[in-house]
């Protein structure tokens, strides 16, 4: 089994990579939240994430826009 691909969000190509993260990408936030991208507005700032884990329990199962510097890891 191959390791799922981790996107490189730092460095000169990081913003463009973030801008093009596809739907379904797994996202982990620096606050311990986790979920999946349901839409990417392509603005280089946000991805829309449906949370499966969230520090605020009320947001589990909800969608929220996540700012790029709150993303700890993006995985295929």
């Amino acid at each position: 089994m191959t390791e799922p691909k981790k996107y490189v969000l730092s460095g000169p190509n990081g913003a463009d990579t973030f801008r093009n993260l596809p739907e379904g990408t797994k996202i982990a936030t620096i606050y311990g939240g986790a979920g999946e991208i349901t839409a990417n507005p392509g603005d280089g700032a946000y991805v829309l994430v449906r949370f499966t884990e969230h520090e605020n329990a009320a947001l589990v199962g909800q969608e929220e826009y996540v700012f790029f510097n709150e993303v700890r890891e993006a995985t295929e």
């Binding site: 839409a39 507005p41 392509g42 603005d43 700032a45 946000y46 826009y65 700012f67």
Partner: peptide
């Protein structure tokens, strides 16, 4: 667009004008 994101401090608004981030 899905949202309108300000390039200054990244306040962002959805297509109903609501601040969503």
């Amino acid at each position: 667009s899905l949202i309108f994101t300000c390039p200054f401090h990244a306040w962002t608004y959805d297509t109903t004008g609501r601040l969503v981030g």
